[in-house]
Design a protein around this nucleic acid. Structure first.
Length: 187
DNA sequence: CTCGGGATGCGT
DNA sequence: CGCATCCCGAGG
């Protein structure tokens, strides 16, 4: 077991989104709340790749909602979906590109009955809502990502099309969902 | 202003 | 498969 807890900095996220996505699998999402600090392994994510990606909110342009995605990497983009669930995204790539990664599922690294699988449930259990929107990952926001030096090789990653984006035409076919093989905390 | 629909989850 | 529930973006 590890344990050098190295916090991933802005530079980690300021790279091509598909690269960041694969590197993010297996990393540790940390949530710091008054009740304590909890750690979760990232097991499932999706890449959303800017204006040309019709499934990406950025395809609608830089609006009051999407401007966070167009801002600097390493920031948090949270939005409300279906009137009841929040989705957690981590901004990637360069300023102006409008790219981000949706965190869909994590594995709790502590004893719990939580089942933070699916973007809505994940936000529910980690107490993530619109107040975190536009914040920067780090101690200040109580949400960050650590590298525990676990190595995830490409052979341990499964790839598929993204969930719930059938409306996005050709973009819906992009193989931009990534999840850990042999991990039951996947949707 | 209205209106259609959504990066979901849960119960049937 | 239907539905809850509300914000967003498009259009008048």
């Amino acid at each position: 077991m590890s344990l050098r807890r190295i916090i991933l900095r802005q530079q980690f996220f300021a790279r091509p989104t598909l690269i960041v996505a694969k590197d993010l699998l297996g990393k540790i999402l940390v949530r710091q709340l008054p009740a304590g600090t909890r750690r979760y392994r990232i097991t499932e994510i999706e890449a959303y790749c800017g204006a040309a990606d019709l499934a990406c909110h950025a395809a609608k342009g830089c609006t009051s909602r999407t401007k966070v995605m167009f801002g600097p990497a390493g920031h948090i983009y949270v939005y409300l979906i279906y009137g009841m669930y929040y989705c957690l995204n981590l901004v990637t790539a360069n300023v102006g590109e409008g790219e981000a990664i949706l965190v869909r599922a994590v594995e709790p690294l502590f004893t719990t009955d939580e089942w933070p699988v699916g973007p809505g449930r994940l936000c529910k259990y980690l107490n993530i809502d619109k107040h975190l929107n536009a914040a920067k990952l780090g101690q200040q926001s109580g949400l960050w990502v650590e590298d525990d030096e676990l190595v995830v090789s490409p052979s341990q990653i499964n790839v598929s099309s993204r969930r719930g984006v059938g409306y996005a035409g050709k973009s819906a076919l992009k193989p931009w969902r990534f999840y850990l093989k042999d991990n039951r905390f996947v949707s």
